[in-house]
């Protein structure tokens, strides 16, 4: 279609102004910086790159060593150590729930004075920034190299995450029921019980389960510093280069983690989404 066809007689259309191309220098600069950082990291890191060439062959060889004939005789011990790891994860989760649930109310807007709230939130983020394994190293000077240390470290880490998720969930609760309880003369504990809890309970339950899933992985890792459990067993057998046993342990870790994740995930979905809708029977 030509421009003349749409021109109304007697009027001259001003030429269409094409907007300038959006400036791309910001994104170009950003990609240049990223490339520079990555190149710098590769260039400066001390790695024997020559070793990389026979790495694939090595890995295939070790996988063969681990999995062609796993020592199933070690399975009972592996399962017992896994149970200890899971026990550590469970106890850590329970302790964290007991401490974090009241604290998340204190950290939520509307329940405590601002300085207390902010201090508590700072504490939660501080705890979240420290890896659990370092927390475990700190508290083992008091509790020794026992699974209890692992459970306590997981509890500390759990307070950081559960506390944060908790106060976010409480602040997300619709204000109507809370106002209604207040208007009816309810005390703070009654506001929590009848205004907040019914709305946030499903989220809390699902956070607890999710934190348990995280703890199951973390408890396997905590064994590496010697507090017991499957990670402890794994380090000793890798140090002795008993690859067939290492194979069994890795299989146990994978199966247990995937099963617990699946069970807990199904429970969480049931809690958050409710029962599957049933059709009304037509007659």
């Amino acid at each position: 279609m030509s421009a003349a066809a749409t021109t109304i007689p007697g009027r001259v259309r001003p030429p269409l102004a094409v907007p300038a191309r959006p400036s791309r220098w910001r994104s170009r600069l950003a990609s240049a910086v990223v490339v520079a950082v990555v190149v710098l990291a590769f260039w400066s890191v001390q790695i024997d790159w020559a070793r990389l060439s026979h790495l694939p062959a090595d890995i295939v060889r070790y996988l063969w060593l681990m999995f062609h004939a796993p020592t199933w005789a070690k399975l009972p011990e592996a399962l017992f150590q896994t149970w200890r790891s899971v026990a550590m994860a469970w106890a850590g989760t329970v302790l964290a729930i007991l401490v974090a649930t009241p604290l998340s109310f204190v950290a939520a807007r509307g329940f405590a004075p601002a300085p207390v709230r902010l201090a508590l939130r700072g504490l939660f983020s501080l705890v979240r920034a420290v890896p659990e394994i370092i927390t475990a190293i700190i508290i083992l000077s008091v509790t020794g190299l026992t699974p209890l240390t692992g459970a306590l470290a997981l509890a500390v880490g759990g307070v950081g995450t559960l506390g944060k998720w908790g106060y976010e969930s409480i602040e997300g609760v619709p204000g109507g029921p809370i106002e209604a309880v207040r208007a009816a003369g309810g005390s703070t504990s009654q506001v929590i019980r009848w205004g907040v809890w019914p709305a946030s309970a499903p989220e809390f339950l699902s956070f607890w389960l999710y934190r348990f899933e995280i703890n199951v992985r973390a408890s396997a890792v905590l064994g590496l510093i010697g507090v017991g459990g499957i990670g402890d067993m794994l380090t000793s057998y890798t140090q002795y280069r008993e690859w067939p046993t290492v194979g069994v342990l890795l299989i146990v870790v994978v199966v247990v983690t995937i099963s617990i994740d699946a069970a807990s995930g199904a429970l969480r979905r049931r809690i958050m989404e409710g029962a599957r809708a049933r059709a009304l029977d037509e007659q």
């Binding site: 070793r51 394994i133 794994l234 890798t238 890795l250 983690t257």
Partner: peptide, 18 residues
């Protein structure tokens, strides 16, 4: 399903410290 520290523990035994 395997945490990265467990991979690292096994890989250190395979390819050496570093």
């Amino acid at each position: 399903a395997v945490p990265e520290l467990l991979y690292a523990a096994v890989l250190v035994a395979m390819v050496g410290v570093g």
